[in-house]
Design a protein around this nucleic acid. Sequence first.
DNA 1: CGGAAAACGGAAGGAGCCTTCCACTTGGGC
DNA 2: GCCCAAGTGGAAGGCTCCTTCCGTTTTCCG
Lengths: 205, 205
Amino acid sequence: MAGEKTQLRVDARQNRDRIVASARETFAADGLDVSMTEIARRAGVGVATLYRRFPTKDALVREVFAEQLEACTGEVRGAAEDPDPWRGFCRAVEKLCEMQARDRGFSAAFLTAFPEAVPVDGMRAMAEEAFAGVVTRAKATGRLRPDFTTDDLTLVLMANNGLVTDSVEAAVAASRRLVAYFLQAFQARDPLPPPVSLGLRDALG
Amino acid sequence: MAGEKTQLRVDARQNRDRIVASARETFAADGLDVSMTEIARRAGVGVATLYRRFPTKDALVREVFAEQLEACTGEVRGAAEDPDPWRGFCRAVEKLCEMQARDRGFSAAFLTAFPEAVPVDGMRAMAEEAFAGVVTRAKATGRLRPDFTTDDLTLVLMANNGLVTDSVEAAVAASRRLVAYFLQAFQARDPLPPPVSLGLRDALG
DNA sequence: CGGAAAACGGAAGGAGCCTTCCACTTGGGC
DNA sequence: GCCCAAGTGGAAGGCTCCTTCCGTTTTCCG
């Protein structure tokens, strides 16, 4: 995924880096609904420069969040190696949610918005695979309820994504409390009311 | 909240009703990001007619969701009268979340978007007050964990709001599962000392 | 039934956004 | 130091959206 245009002119390279940095900050703070003009302004370049590097806004978004996604996958993998599977599970959920809470744009890019985000989907699939391992092992210890599914992670992330607040700190605090509740609910207990997910209906009579 | 302009011409009255109905359906299905032109088209009127009744899009949104909010308050009050406070608590949370899941625009209007929504806030405050009573009683029985706060309801609703799916049914199904998890987490973990049955007078204030 | 006021529809104003175009500048191999 | 291609900035095209304006149609009171 690298090494395509390494022969960028040095000034162009610097500008490109500034653009990505600027876009990352701005997306994190205000979400994806920021104009390209604004991003260019904050990067100290003209809008044409931005478009020379990223032919479309989607492309910029993908570039910006590609490494964020990689960090995600890394966290999950790290959690997967925790000697205590349940603790690893908790760590994975906590980390993912905190990352999400700290970056509004990332949430949006990760969960909704961009159907064109092919590399995003690929990366996401890898993270999900790693997470599936954590789940299996955590269930084996008996700490994680057996009817937990990997779809429930999506549920958690979507729920966590809903926590929109004024400040990042408030979002993180809210996210922490949310996750704490979730983790208590995920601990093995009595059977669940509704079965799996997606496509099903009719639960409580 | 009625009786301001009862002397609307009959055709105007009909058009107004069609506008509100059309707006409600459209907001519910697609959220608040629908153009006024589209709403007018679906109502079978010109855009000017729409603006004659509702000077701004905000005004239309408020009108549309005012009665939704009233329904909300009604649900909470109904739950408040349940002889079993814990069951009432569960019912309130379940009902609110389901209503939210069924109506994307309502979620958005209720939780975010419109700071100008004064009547919304007023109505919301009433619902919150009713809910506070439910919480107090549910805690008194020992079923609801004592560290639950009414802010946690906001947490739940925001989380529930994050459940964006393709179809309404999928959203409702996801919401059900989410709520089931929450309710398990909200249950007092270890049975508290016997429910002290003093009068409720002090608590309700 | 007749006319004034209310209501109407569609076009047009004004703003914002993504994207493209083009004349000008700058880097770096020769 | 020269020169051309790569790079650049800002203006402008095209689109959508919210809102306003105005000539025409409809209601309803006397």
